[in-house]
């Protein structure tokens, strides 16, 4: 139940970080240059993927800790 609870909290926390902190990022405010807009969007995608990888690593770590503690 602990792992499920942590996963639930991480879904909340992750969506908060992505949609409140990452999505509003605007490195080049007011620009109409497609290249700069593309790089701005790319940065958001990279940061979101990075967060997802962290989520996966936390889950794997929790699983390993649980198995080691019980065995």
């Amino acid at each position: 139940m602990g792992i499920i609870g942590v996963a639930w909290l991480l879904v909340f926390l992750g969506s908060y970080i992505i949609f409140y902190l990452i999505v509003p990022i605007d490195l080049f405010p007011g620009t109409k240059d497609y290249v700069l807009t593309f790089f701005n969007s790319l940065l958001k995608v990279v940061l979101s993927i990075f967060l997802s990888i962290i989520w996966i690593l936390i889950m794997i770590k929790l699983r390993d800790i649980y198995i080691k503690r019980k065995l």
Binding site: I3, I4, A7, W8, I56, M59, R63
Partner: peptide
């Protein structure tokens, strides 16, 4: 569906 998702993920 987290128990099933975590099961398949693990």
């Amino acid at each position: 569906i987290l128990p099933a998702i975590l099961n398949s993920f693990f």
